[in-house]
Nucleic acid binder design. Structure first.
Length: 479
RNA sequence: GCCCCCAUCGUCUAGUGGCCUAGGACGCUGCCCUUUCAAGGCGGUAACACGGGUUCGAAUCCCGUUGGGGGUGCCA
């Protein structure tokens, strides 16, 4: 009776536990994955992998118009990026159309559903007809006295017992007049056919659960265990939406966030490790995660905290891993491939790694070592050069000192210290105009180590240029 | 409107009847360190929504109120 997909996910059960749990992540193929969906996928995956179960992917393409493979690839890539591996090939809901049709006919024949026209008027007949929709007849629900206070109830892993009165439910559409199944029908049939044991999904789907269960009951299917995850919300505490909120997972990746940081952060939304240690490797989370510990209340997607997670994960990387992660970021920066100096990047990487919050920040820390004439940050330039009365003196003095000094970080450091002392300034103050003159910014990697990499001649050239470019009224160029 | 769900610092959370004058983290903030800071160290700020029960004892259990959210499509 039960039929499988034409290309079913062949998943040999774990011999040690013959009834290994099976979960699925079931996004629409919009070619876009938002952080809420990613969190749902992650929790499915955490559950599956922590109990030796299977993690499947089903693409809910009840409308088959669009290029499904291409759109699906984006989702699969993003999941893979996050570290979520899928068992078997993705399943396309649209491939199961014949099975859906057959089930609807069966429900029609058994009097559990009825045909209806565009005005929602009931039309006689007990098999599918072109141009007519089909509704499930809630009142046909058997095994319960017709007049009693009838409910469909289930035990949700995160919410406990949830119950809906049949009398509150309308006869709902399971088949559209355009010949496609609705989500309700497809969901019930596909979960059955895929042998899904646990349906872990967003709380926004909670009201649809009793309808899906009614269909499954009518088919004699075993209902999966449900777990409705708390929603991810914006600062106004509304469910995250593609339109209002910047929640595209791909965007975060492109902004220089590490997948392990994103996954780690997402795992703390609606769940917390018992030992209070939030930032940690996924292997540890896998060991600690329990579906029944998931919280019920919605969680705000806090980008500040995400940034902190990212900065911390960045610093946890080994030097080699940091450079490796950095690689794609070194190609889309201000400098040309010819200007890029890998040996400089490599030397500076450990210093930069301690400072930045995202991979995208790195370019701004090192670009002045690659570019011939790095851009100047106007605010820094004004503050530390133009409006600094001793800037000219410091720069002039620095030129003389740096021209002589042994070209190693320690000696340059010492020389800068002395330049400052001659102005009665601590190094912290004294280095500011030098930094801005050389790098164009007031913030960057430790100065003297990187200066050495720039070369003495170039340092002197930029210092002279800064003097020339600064207001001639109060600074006179020196030769 | 109706149905369903939720309720600990601004935010994410720990807490499952005594360990709680409520712990951690982000943020904010003070001080320190320092070669800048978007780094680091040490502090500070700040919460059990409200009202009734139950109990020797409640953030924890029950009821109600209020507030918030989700759903209410031939979307998913």
């Amino acid at each position: 009776m039960r039929q499988t997909f034409t290309s079913p996910p062949e998943m040999p059960d774990n011999p040690a536990s013959p009834k290994a749990p099976r979960v699925r992540f079931a996004p629409s193929p919009t070619g876009y994955l938002h952080v809420g969906g990613a969190r749902t996928a992650l929790f499915n995956w955490l559950f599956a992998r922590s109990v030796g179960g299977h993690m499947l992917l089903r693409i809910e393409d009840t409308d088959t118009e669009r290029n499904r493979q291409e759109l699906t690839n984006t989702i699969v890539d993003l999941l893979e990026w996050l570290g979520i591996d899928i068992d078997g090939e993705p399943v396309f809901q649209s491939d199961n159309r014949e099975r859906h049709r057959q089930v609807v006919n069966q429900l029609l024949r058994e009097g559990r559903a009825f045909l209806c026209d565009a005005d929602n008027q009931r039309v006689p007949g007990n098999s599918l007809k072109d141009g007519l929709a089909v509704r499930f007849q809630v009142s046909s629900t058997q095994d319960m006295p017709a007049t009693a206070d009838r409910h469909v109830a289930f035990e949700d892993v995160v919410r406990g017992v949830v119950s809906f009165a049949l009398s509150d439910m309308e006869d709902f559409v399971i088949w559209r007049s355009n010949g496609t199944p609705t989500f309700l029908l497809a969901n019930a049939v596909d979960d059955t056919d895929m042998g899904i044991t646990h349906a872990i999904r967003g709380e926004d789907l909670l009201p649809s659960a009793p309808k899906v269960q009614l269909i499954m009951d009518a088919l004699g299917s075993q209902r999966p265990v449900y777990a409705h995850l708390p929603l991810l919300v914006n600062e106004k505490r509304q469910k995250l939406s593609k339109r209002r909120d910047d929640v595209s997972l791909g965007n975060w990746r492109d902004k220089g966030y590490l997948p392990q940081a994103m996954a780690n952060y997402l795992a703390t939304l609606g769940w917390g490790p018992p030992d209070d240690i939030e930032i940690r490797p996924m292997e540890e989370i896998l060991e600690l995660f329990r579906l029944e510990d998931v919280l019920k209340s919605p969680a705000f997607f806090d980008t500040k905290k995400l940034e902190h997670f990212n900065a911390t994960h960045l610093r946890m990387l080994s030097a080699e891993d940091f450079l490796e992660q950095l690689e794609p970021w070194l190609e889309r920066t201000a400098w040309t491939p010819e200007q890029f100096r890998p040996e400089v990047m490599e030397a500076l990487a450990p210093l930069v790694q301690e400072k930045v919050r995202t991979l995208a920040d790195v370019g701004r820390f090192v670009d002045w070592l690659m570019l011939d004439d790095p851009p100047r940050d106007e605010a820094s330039w004004q503050k530390h050069i133009v409006n600094n009365p001793v800037a000219g003196a410091i720069l002039s003095d620095a030129i003389e000192a740096f021209a002589e000094v042994e070209w190693v970080a320690e000696a340059v450091h010492q020389a800068a210290l002395e330049v400052g002392e001659r102005q009665g300034l601590k190094l912290g103050k004294a280095q500011a105009p030098i930094r801005v003159a050389l790098t164009g910014r007031a913030v960057g990697p430790p100065l003297f180590q990187s200066m050495v990499l720039l070369s003495r001649d170039e340092v002197l050239r930029r210092l002279r240029l800064a003097i020339l470019d600064s207001a001639p009224a109060n600074l006179s160029p020196i030769s």
